[in-house]
């Protein structure tokens, strides 16, 4: 899975530059995800293959962190955002979790759930040296400590929202519209401005050599302002106040 994901990220980044929004979903058994993770944890440090797999997944997650695309996680019934796979959602700019079932769905099984595990507290650090949760709740160590006590159990949508683990948790009445509008809203904004905003939201706090090169400093505001999407003849800055809309080059850089 890691290899396929890595491959996909690179393909989309290099070949599909106008696809500015990626939606990340998972599908599978939460239990399987957690069981696999236990194997990794059990042999980590002593088995070279297990080590390689762990580091490989860490690097792929880092790739997501520095991807200049809007990343949206949709957490729906039948998904398996648990432990290491929850990192995929946490790497996203926004997480939407369906509260309950969609009416047209079978309504069997469990509604969407997520599970925190040890993997979410430092096993897969970002380029700034922090876990994604520590980045998300930067400066609020108490909350991270509180989350640590929630590991291993299934967290439903309402609770995930309360714990700050997801952006929103619409129910079936709102789900379809909210997701559609959210995606359209993002797609309408300046791609460069989004790249800058997203990089800045993903990487908080400390800079490391790695983040200086790959993270938010590469998309600082001076860069956004000199891009044609801002300063060009049809850019947002030149069109501002005229009542005319900016014309954006949709390719992500």
């Amino acid at each position: 899975m890691t290899r396929e994901l890595d491959d996909l990220i690179l393909r989309l980044r290099a070949n599909e530059r106008e696809l500015g929004t990626w939606v990340i979903r998972t599908k599978g058994e939460v239990e399987d995800a957690l069981a696999f993770e236990r194997v990794i944890a059990r042999y980590s440090g002593e088995d070279w293959l297990v080590n390689e797999i762990r580091h490989y997944f860490k690097r792929v997650l880092k790739r997501l962190d520095v991807t200049s695309r809007s990343l949206i996680a949709l957490i729906e019934p039948g998904s398996c955002f648990a432990g290491a796979l929850l990192e995929l959602a946490l790497a996203c700019d926004r997480q939407y979790m369906l509260d309950g079932f969609l009416e047209e769905d079978s309504q069997e099984g469990e509604p969407a759930q997520i599970v925190l595990s040890e993997s979410n507290f430092g096993t897969f650090p970002m380029g700034n040296g922090l876990s994604r949760l520590a980045s998300r709740f930067y400066g609020d160590d108490d909350h991270v400590a509180k989350l640590r006590q929630e590991t291993g159990r299934r967290i439903d949508a309402a609770e995930a929202l309360e714990l700050g683990l997801v952006t929103d948790a619409p129910d079936d009445i709102d789900w379809e519209d909210e997701i559609r509008i959210l995606l359209e809203e993002r797609a309408a904004l300046s791609p460069d401005a989004l790249t800058g905003m997203e990089a800045n939201h993903r990487f908080v706090g400390p800079e490391t050599m790695e983040t200086r090169i790959f993270a938010r400093l590469s998309a600082w505001q001076n860069w956004i302002f000199v891009r044609p999407n801002a300063a060009g003849p049809d850019g947002a800055l030149r069109r501002y106040g005229t009542g005319r809309r900016a014309d954006f080059d949709r390719r992500r850089v």
């Binding site: 559609r180 509008i181 959210l182 995606l183 359209e184 809203e185 993002r186 797609a187 309408a188 005319r244 809309r245």
Partner: peptide, 17 residues
Amino acid sequence: GEQKGEPVWQQVPGEYR
């Protein structure tokens, strides 16, 4: 406006929500 001539919207476009 800019989209003159196109069919009207039956849904709110996210951009203008």
